[in-house]
Amino acid sequence: MKLSILDQSPISSNQSAREALEGSVKLAQAGEKLGYSRYWIAEHHDLPGLACPAPEVMLGCIGAQTKKIRIGSGAVLLPHYKPYKVAEVYHMLATLFPDRIDIGIGRAPGGSAEATNALSDNFLQQVWKMPDLVKELLHFLHNDFPEGHEFSGIKASPTPDIAPEPWLLGTSIKSARLAAENGLAYAFGQFMSDNDGRAIIQEYLECYKQRKRDQHPQVILTVSVICAETNEKAEEVALSSLIWSLQKENREGNQGVPSIQEAKQYILNEKEQATYSKLKQNMIIGNPSFVKQRLKEMQAFYKADEIMIVTITYSPKDRISSYQLIANEIF
């Protein structure tokens, strides 16, 4: 089973943003040593408790402090940017770190309406143009605009020997079809979706095969996991993440991921208890053998080639330990 890491660069209540970002570097280094295939870092804008608005900056830092693990964005939020600039940035990274760069493409705003307006004057119009933006970006990544196109005379420099590997990230039928139509690998965000992921991935696979692509379609399934030595310990560690999710929903999570003790003191009302149960059902929480069993079941159910794990804990040690326990059990 291929396993990878998605890092949202969470800030715990006792951390600074710098400490959280330093923790991201350490996580990527640990992932490499443990045998994980990729490390992706997410893009968020002015969201309390999340430290990374610029994956491309962190990827330069992380690439310089790792040797072989694939690194990438999960995702670059394309409607905010011109495809040409995105291609230049990721060509630069692919030149510095050959055959290691992934470019995950997403269309979410990644922040509040106010942050979105500060980033872009026409975000919604760009979302509608997403299919065109994706095609334009792919042409720039491969420098293969047809002759006569307005951009055929320019290149996204520097041109790396091996282009970044593009992935389309999504949680909908629309994103699945867009990935298939463009011959792209597809990453489904199960951890952040209530949609029927199995049906969405099946749509991707069928649309991809209908176009008779030479390459095999690739699917990553991204799941939220907390692993510890025992089920009881995993439940305790997961409490911080679950309570923080509730706090963010109530716009109370500005202090970052709460400690386990702080989370235990949080009193749930009736509505929050229902939300808590729903959030927990969408996670895998347990000891290594339980996590291994659930990951294998999910891989088979969703027909995924690879599982990408996102883990949020209060303690950086608990986070790395979770990935280590899973790796030791599976690899």
Score class of each variant (00 low, 15 high):
190 Q>L: 15
272 E>C: 06
52 C>M: 11
57 V>G: 07
317 K>Y: 13
184 L>P: 08
311 T>Y: 07
219 V>T: 01
152 S>E: 01
255 Q>N: 14
265 Q>T: 12
196 D>I: 07
247 Q>C: 14
173 I>R: 06
328 N>K: 08
103 I>W: 01
286 G>T: 09
240 S>V: 03
143 N>D: 08
6 L>Q: 01
239 L>G: 04
143 N>W: 04
54 A>I: 05
105 I>E: 09
152 S>A: 12
198 R>F: 03
258 P>E: 05
97 F>H: 01
183 G>P: 15
221 L>S: 11
251 R>I: 04
331 F>R: 10
101 I>L: 08
270 E>P: 02
260 I>C: 12
161 D>G: 12
142 H>I: 05
9 S>H: 12
65 Q>D: 00
247 Q>R: 13
153 G>Q: 13
117 N>S: 10
35 G>K: 11
86 V>F: 01
208 Y>A: 02
231 N>V: 15
158 P>A: 01
197 G>Q: 12
129 K>F: 07
298 M>F: 10
298 M>Q: 10
143 N>G: 12
177 R>K: 14
257 V>S: 01
294 R>W: 14
127 V>K: 12
210 Q>F: 13
92 M>A: 00
240 S>P: 13
328 N>Q: 08
183 G>M: 11
270 E>N: 09
183 G>H: 05
285 I>E: 03
8 Q>W: 10
221 L>V: 04
242 L>A: 14
121 D>N: 09
280 K>T: 03
67 K>R: 11
204 Y>T: 00
281 Q>A: 01
210 Q>P: 08
84 Y>G: 06
159 T>V: 13
207 C>T: 08
90 Y>R: 00
249 E>F: 13
26 K>T: 01
308 M>E: 00
177 R>P: 06
291 V>C: 04
19 E>Y: 08
202 Q>S: 04
233 K>A: 15
317 K>H: 14
98 P>G: 09
34 L>V: 04
273 Q>E: 10
154 I>R: 03
290 F>C: 10
222 T>L: 06
188 F>G: 02
199 A>W: 11
242 L>D: 06
201 I>V: 08
252 E>P: 02
220 I>S: 08
171 T>V: 13
64 A>P: 09
282 N>M: 14
8 Q>T: 13
329 E>I: 09
12 S>V: 05
86 V>R: 02
309 I>G: 00
9 S>E: 05
262 E>D: 12
111 G>M: 13
139 H>A: 14
250 N>S: 12
40 W>T: 00
237 V>Q: 14
100 R>W: 04
77 L>V: 07
148 G>P: 11
72 G>H: 07
94 A>C: 00
285 I>L: 14
224 S>D: 15
197 G>W: 09
260 I>T: 03
225 V>Q: 08
272 E>R: 14
129 K>E: 15
159 T>S: 06
125 Q>D: 10
140 F>S: 03
178 L>R: 01
330 I>R: 06
